[in-house]
Design a binder for these strands. Structure first.
Length: 491
RNA sequence: GCUGGUGUGGUGUAGUUCGGUCCAUCAUGACGGACUCUCGAUCCGUCGACCCGGGUUCAAAUCCCGGCAUCAGCACCA
């Protein structure tokens, strides 16, 4: 039997040199679970090899996937949260426009590129037919003259484009004279209307990767043709393209895909409340729900770098998270559909308070419930547990306290403190420690379930385990008249 | 249509480079049990896979040929 490989696969061509990785998102929204794969895999390799990582905002498209001004800062935060550190280099493509335009002029002068004034539809015909379009024979001087007309506004959007001169006989149609720069007249959120001619991803990214000395590109396999295009350009410029690794397409059962544009549209239409709506697969939402960065790291490293298209259940991520947080999450009692019971306590000697551990095995301190027994004891349990008891012999175990017998009229009596055999253990609250709360759950939309939560002094943001319910994060501490707000994490 | 990628239990994953150490790893899941004053945790057990068909070979998950399935690219998106 072979030795089982641990962690990520070996990186090709990584010996004896300084490695540079990069993560290059379009800031058209905050990062999604899908993006986190790029952040985590690249930074993980950088960490293992003592390499550097570049965070580059590829924000040169202002029409179909326009950048969002706020998203830059969000992504900075999310990158830091996911990796525990800032990137070694942070760049904005939109601040580097002059470089791309200079490079484009060089390429035109060397006839690596030419200006094409065919319409997109016209060019498509020649591309499919493997024929040269009329512009293809332009000399470098002619292309440079046309280039000036692109820059000065003579050509309107869609009337001219810079193409890389490849080979119309390329067997892969995607590689035949692909477009490198085009005219966009809209406003960029950062640089406004300063530029008319903008590079497309394949041109911009190719130049940047060389400039930044990127040695390894690790990204989704949907960009395989992008690699081939960029390699064509690198060959013409006498550069060596970085090593490139790919992963396949991922779907998470609970979310489907991770389209930032789609989410943006759904938020604008009101279907979701915001980018941190707990039903959304954004990093912000996952953080809000109490997932840890480490659980995401384990999740992606375990999935590795296969080019298979996969569909994984969120349960895999949840299992990692449970394992990580269980030992440090205090226990609390939370009742959904609470019902009150007035218990006769005459059969037992009642203590004046109850001391409960915050964790069954770890030393996380205790909490104390005062018990008011002047006229019996009032307790709250879940309606479902009451119904369960009434369908049987009526006996329940109040966890860590006493066995009781309930009746259908909302009453009951204390039996004894010892636990009887086979009695169902239920979580409960003593009257006086219950606080109004809502639990935000992702299953039925961002619904707010009214609940009763045990009084506590945990801070906002604390991850707790609700006994017999599951993990949740305290999003807002309750206050006079304002209920506690909890966000469901997982079971 | 053209081009490229990928097919291992329910879901992922290791193994494929260089055929034998693989009646195929690990995790998750489901089911059952032990323990526990949570339906959590821990422990134990069970279930379950090499896309199909040929070929080469003493020997194929691994190499070759042919299918099939599936995903992606063929944008003046990133």
């Amino acid at each position: 039997m072979h030795e089982r490989r641990e962690g990520l696969p070996e990186l090709p061509n990584s010996e004896g040199r300084e490695l540079v990785f990069r993560f290059a998102p379009n800031p058209n929204g905050p990062l999604t679970l899908g993006h986190s794969r790029g952040v985590i895999i690249n930074s993980e390799y950088a960490r293992q090899h003592g390499g550097r990582i570049v965070l580059r905002f590829d924000d040169t498209g202002i029409k179909t996937k326009p950048p969002l001004a706020e998203a830059y800062g969000w992504i900075d935060d999310e990158f830091r949260w996911l990796t525990g550190r800032a990137p070694d280099v942070r760049l904005l493509a939109s601040e580097r426009m002059d470089l791309y335009l200079d490079k484009a002029r060089d390429c035109l002068a060397q006839r690596i590129c030419y200006v094409c004034t065919c319409t997109a539809d016209e060019f498509k015909v020649t591309r499919v037919a493997r024929e040269a379009c009329p512009c293809r024979s332009r000399s470098s001087e002619q292309s440079l003259a046309e280039w000036e007309k692109m820059l000065d506004g003579t050509y309107a959007e869609g009337e001219a484009v810079v193409r890389v001169l490849t080979d119309m006989e390329e067997s892969n149609p995607a590689l035949r004279d692909w477009p490198a720069l085009r005219i966009q007249t809209g406003e960029h959120p950062l640089v406004g209307t300063r530029y008319r001619v903008w590079p497309l991803l394949d041109f911009q990214s190719a130049i940047d990767d060389e400039e930044q000395g990127v040695t390894h590109i690790i990204r989704g396999k949907d960009l395989m043709d992008s690699t081939r295009k960029q390699t064509q350009l690198y060959d013409k410029l006498g550069w060596t393209y970085p090593e490139t690794l790919y992963w396949g397409r991922v779907k998470v059962h609970e979310f489907g895909g991770f389209s930032t544009s789609q989410m943006r549209a759904d938020i604008e239409s009101g279907e979701f409340s915001d980018w941190d709506d707990i039903r959304l697969p954004t990093i912000r939402a996952l953080r809000r729900r109490g997932f840890t960065a480490e659980s995401l790291r384990l999740f992606w490293v375990e999935l590795g770098l296969t080019q298979k298209d996969i569909s994984v259940p969120l349960a895999t991520l949840e299992a990692h998270n449970s394992g990580l947080v269980d030992a440090s999450t205090p226990r609390l009692s939370l009742l959904r559909d609470p019902v009150r019971l007035a218990l006769d306590v005459s059969a037992v000697e009642m203590p004046s308070e109850l001391v409960l551990p915050n964790h069954p095995t770890e030393d996380l301190g205790v909490r104390t419930w005062p018990l008011d027994t002047d006229s019996g004891l009032e307790v709250l349990i879940e309606k479902g547990d009451l119904e369960f008891a009434l369908s049987g012999d009526g006996v329940l175990r109040l966890k860590e306290f006493a066995d009781i017998e309930v009746t259908s009229d909302g009453g009951g009596r204390m039996l004894h403190f010892e636990k009887g055999d086979g009695v169902r253990i239920v979580h409960w609250l003593a009257a006086g420690v219950e606080r109004d709360a809502v639990l935000l759950h992702d299953c039925e939309g961002e619904l707010q379930h009214p609940c009763m939560l045990e009084s506590n002094d945990h801070a906002e943001g604390t991850l707790v385990q609700l006994e017999r319910v599951g993990f949740a994060r305290i999003e807002q501490v309750g206050d006079r008249g304002r209920p506690w707000r909890l966000v469901w994490t997982h079971g």
